[in-house]
Write a protein that binds this DNA or RNA. Structure first.
Length: 558
RNA sequence: AACUCCGUGGUGUAACGGUAGCACAACAGAUUUUGGUUCUGUUUGUCAAGGUUCGAAUCCUUGCGGAGUUGCCA
């Protein structure tokens, strides 16, 4: 009898297991701390899945906390979109929504506390002077001439900073740590800066704002966060994070643990670059289906479950890796194969006339909704004398391995009949305008006929008289370069063919009932979803992702 | 040549001193009323050199390579 091995856990969950086993904590509290200055992207989704996932698995909680300490960059618009995205991903913060700005007065008191302990001082140096005196990676910094002000003077000055008696940048409050510290973050970091700006929540109540470092750990402590999970670039901030916890009367002792952020090939992820794509109109907006934003992915038709599965498969480590976008697409296909209803749609239509089929006859065939779940039943698809098929599914002079329709050849029209091509009609310029076929009544429903005849291909079709006209948008990767951040300007690597619009698509009538938010399969083509731009007059579908296509792959190799 | 962190197939991720496994990708085949799905098989890996040990991806030493850090951003 073999016992299945326990599922392997990432290093963060192992730490949590130990902390729970040792009794250091008896429950877990994590947090997702976005700054409301932009839209969430799939990298954030990784962090959301980690933090909220841990809360679910351990029966703990995960706080949503907006890190809103910089009024010049932040806005409520972002708060709302961030909340929507987290919910869409399938997570719930319950009552635990917080704002760092709720702690401003507590943080102010703690700053005063540090001054009284002789651990903070008001500095009059300009930003430039501070930079010069900070030293660099190899050389120690120089202490500020204002470093040894008296407690009274510091208290007075800090009070005046708060009251608005100074202009932006005139003074800052700094921690008094060590100007020669090998970690630059410890060289008397700034705690408070003066910013006369309207804050999206506190209005003009404050004109001094705490820095990230002076806010984050203390906020964690105030919320009794046990494990504060962040990305690798905060590793160098951990000593400072702990310095504040050591020197302030905080109510709890959170632990910061860093993990590697998500990166994907053929994708840019930095907020700055995504913003640039939007502002300079390389994409239609934050929710352009080509964007790696949560809203873009949603509009593209990726299911939330696929994102969650993807985050599970990439794991959590400290190793800076680049994930293959194919892995994400695989997660998407895996979910959609299970969940998407099947329909027929012709993207690039060419007309087929079934010459031996009665002119005004219409038959309805039963077509399976999802072959993975036959119990879901069937839908009715109308068939008539005039049909559309995919231009790619016909070749007048086919290569050897081409199984689809060509002169003299017979194929199955999915769920309908075997049709044989007898004639090709062309216009004056030689373009094919119609394909004339005959059907075999013995193959009704697409069944093999009694004579045992077989065909090598099944193709999709739409009845011309019943078709819904639609626009279909096909997306390809936004960047051609595997690492668009490398080799100069990332904009140079934009894929000029990342979007192609097909305005003459023909849809099976059932497709008129697909609702926004649902992703379906167009058989043999891929997964598609109605776009936000869709209207009764003009349905618009986005291609979420294509089906694996071994025929196309074989062609490309030649 | 500061400090911190990280090196396992093409990509990502396991193995916690005891057979280097899994997923994706690639390739080959079987099945198929989607050239989809499913199934089977194949190829490819512990950064390097020493050391400890019966035994090292794992522990130690040195080297090599990569990343982050010099905002009054987060």
């Amino acid at each position: 009898m073999s016992v299945p091995p326990p599922p392997s856990k990432d290093f963060i969950r192992e730490i949590i297991d130990e902390d729970l086993a040792s009794g250091k904590h008896d429950s877990t509290v994590t947090r997702f701390p976005p700054e409301p200055n932009g839209y969430l992207h799939i990298g954030h989704a990784k962090s959301i899945c980690l933090n909220f996932g841990i809360a679910e698995e351990y029966g703990g909680r995960c706080h949503l906390r907006f890190d809103d300490t910089n009024p010049t960059k932040e806005d409520v618009e972002y708060v709302d979109s961030i909340k929507e995205d987290i919910q869409w991903l399938g997570f719930d913060w319950g009552d635990h929504i917080y704002f760092a700005s709720d702690y401003f007065s507590k943080l102010y008191d703690w700053a005063v506390h540090l001054i009284k302990e002789g651990l903070a001082y008001v500095d009059d140096q300009s930003a430039e002077e501070m930079r010069e005196n900070r030293g660099d990676l190899q050389t120690p910094g120089v202490e500020s001439p204002f470093r040894n002000r008296t407690e009274e003077e510091n208290l007075d000055l800090f009070e005046k900073m708060k009251r608005g008696e100074f202009k932006d940048g005139e003074k800052v409050l700094r921690a008094k740590i060590d100007m020669a510290h090998p970690n630059l973050n410890m060289r008397d970091p700034v705690l408070y800066r003066i910013v006369h700006a309207e804050h999206h929540r506190t209005g003009d109540e404050w004109c001094i704002y705490p820095m990230y470092d002076f806010t984050h750990g203390q906020s964690d402590a105030l919320e009794y966060v046990t494990h504060s999970l962040c990305t690798l670039e905060f590793e160098n901030h951990r000593p400072l994070y702990e310095w504040f916890l050591d020197n302030l009367p905080v109510p709890s002792r959170p632990r910061q643990i860093e993990f590697s952020r998500l990166s994907l090939n053929y994708t840019v992820m930095s907020k700055r670059k995504l913003l640039q794509l939007v502002q300079e109109n390389y994409v239609s907006g934050w929710d352009d289906p080509r964007m790696p934003t949560v809203s873009g992915i949603r509009r593209r038709g990726y299911p939330a479950e696929a994102i969650r599965n993807f985050c599970k498969t990439i794991g959590i480590t400290k190793y800076k890796s680049t994930n293959d976008i194919a892995l994400l697409e695989n997660s998407v296909r895996e979910v959609l194969n299970r969940t998407a209803s099947r329909f027929m749609a012709v993207l690039d239509p060419i007309k087929v006339i079934v010459t031996n089929y009665p002119e005004d006859q219409v038959e309805e065939f039963d077509a399976v909704i999802n072959p993975e779940y036959p119990e879901l039943g069937t839908r009715k698809v109308p068939f008539s004398r005039e049909l559309y098929i995919e231009r790619d599914d016909f070749m007048e002079d086919p290569p050897k391995k081409f199984f689809r329709l060509s002169p003299g050849k017979e194929v199955r029209f999915r769920c309908a009949y075997f049709l044989k091509c007898n004639e090709v009609v062309k216009d004056d310029e030689g373009n094919i305008t119609e394909i004339h076929c005959t059907y075999d009544p013995e193959t009704r429903g697409g069944e093999n006929p009694p004579d045992g005849r077989k065909v090598k291909a099944t193709i999709h079709w739409v009845s011309a008289a019943h078709a819904i006209d639609a626009e279909v948008r096909l997306y390809d990767r936004l960047f051609q370069h595997e690492a668009p951040d490398k080799d100069g300007d990332f904009l140079q690597h934009l894929n000029p063919e990342s979007l192609s619009v097909l305005s003459n698509a023909k849809l099976e009538p059932n497709l008129g009932k697909v609702e926004l938010g649902e992703t379906v399969q167009f058989e043999r083509l891929g997964y598609f979803c109605p776009d936000l731009d869709t209207s009764v007059e003009k349905p618009v579908f986005n291609r979420t992702v294509g089906l694996r296509d071994s025929w196309a792959k074989a062609q490309k190799k030649k």
